[in-house]
């Protein structure tokens, strides 16, 4: 570990790539469209970007843990939807349309708990019953897209909730969840790279047999990470809701692809929690930039700007190819008798 991995060429190139994208974007915006950068990059912009990045970063941390251990949890989007909806529903049950901050916090806890229970079933399907990880993950998304708005409609008579409440800001006009996420990211990094369990997670994804012959139960490691990923995605959804203050269940729901972005974020961050969080921040900023574009009066390419991360992932994946994914992702592991 040490500095070698922190400053590896691959990482430097990735960070460089991200920086280049940002600078190019800035140059594009300020030169071609003749806009003053200072009107775009305001303090509010930074605050809101961080807020936007928070749920993406949380879900990405969860997803990268699962994938590091060899299970591709493609259902992050679905678990985020469940998380956001459960938080809204719990809040409404507890405090009607004007829940207190305490009830909001409780609702986030409940949402995480429910996600854990759901993921437990998902993990059993994936690990014990060797379900196809891609298809099962997609299924979670479909199920969430169906049942969350369905239940919303039975509760509120409409797919979206009435206005509930959003989380009170802490210092610097910043959401407490932003600070919480910073802690989670740091802890996730330490856990993955500095504890024995982190070693096991990495080994389970790269060479499960080696871990098995070292006397560690591979599937137990994988259960733990998958359930963790569900919990984080559920929490991410709840945080999204806590920031927004109401549940939107139309279209692709209020989560609207953020779970997928989370996957992109950790791929982009090369499976490193800090890299993933940085990528999440990049995406949060891109998201906010669109809003800023509109307020400043640039209409055109907002939607195209949002596509940059996807293009970047494809390029990164092609250029660095197979060295990036843990080599045993997607394969069920069975011990020899």
């Amino acid at each position: 570990m040490r500095t070698t991995t922190l400053l590896s060429p691959k990482r430097l190139r990735l960070v460089g790539l991200a920086a280049v994208i940002l600078v190019a974007l800035g140059a594009f915006v300020s030169i071609v469209l003749d806009v003053q950068v200072e009107r775009l990059i305001t303090r509010g912009f930074v605050t809101r970007s961080l807020e936007m990045a928070t749920p993406i970063a949380l879900a990405a941390i969860g997803g990268l843990y699962a994938e590091k251990s060899g299970v591709f949890n493609i259902g992050l989007e679905g678990f985020m939807i469940f998380g956001a909806f459960t938080a809204a529903a719990t809040m409404f049950m507890l405090g009607g349309t004007s829940p207190t901050q305490g009830q909001l916090w409780l609702a986030m806890g409940v949402a995480t708990l429910i996600s854990i229970i759901l993921t437990l079933g998902f993990a059993v399907l994936l690990i014990r019953y060797k379900a196809d990880q891609i298809v099962a993950g997609l299924a979670i998304w479909f199920i969430a897209l169906g049942f969350a708005p369905f239940t919303a409609a039975t509760i509120w008579g409409s797919r979206s909730s009435p206005g509930l409440t959003s989380i009170n800001n802490l210092a610097f006009g910043q959401s407490p969840m932003v600070f919480f996420t910073v802690i989670v990211v740091a802890a996730a990094w330490v856990f993955l790279y500095r504890t024995r369990y982190g070693y096991w997670i990495q080994a389970a994804g790269e060479n499960p047999k080696a871990l098995d012959t070292a006397g560690v139960d591979v599937n137990r490691v994988r259960y733990a990470t998958v359930i963790f990923s569900g919990a984080m995605a559920g929490l991410a959804g709840a945080v999204l809701l806590a920031h927004a203050g109401n549940w939107v269940g139309t279209g692709d729901t209020m989560v609207d692809g953020r779970g997928w972005i989370a996957i992109v974020a950790y791929l982009f961050g090369n499976y490193n929690p800090i890299g993933a969080a940085a990528a999440a921040l990049l995406f949060g900023a891109l998201d906010m930039l669109n809003v800023q574009f509109q307020t400043v009066g640039i209409e055109a390419s907002a939607r195209l700007v949002n596509l940059l991360p996807y293009v970047a992932v494809i390029i990164v994946l092609t250029v660095w190819g197979k060295t990036r994914m843990p080599s045993k992702v997607g394969e069920a592991y069975e011990t020899e008798e």
Binding site: L125, A131, D132, V135, A136, L138, A139, I140, W141, F142, I143, A144, L145, G146, F147, A148, P149, F150, A152, A153, T154, R159, G249
Partner: peptide, 17 residues
């Protein structure tokens, strides 16, 4: 609410997987 159908479709997919 019609979204139930989407949920059922999702369940079918899940079981088939």
């Amino acid at each position: 609410p019609v979204q139930l159908i989407d949920g059922i479709v999702g369940l079918v997919v899940l079981f088939v997987s």
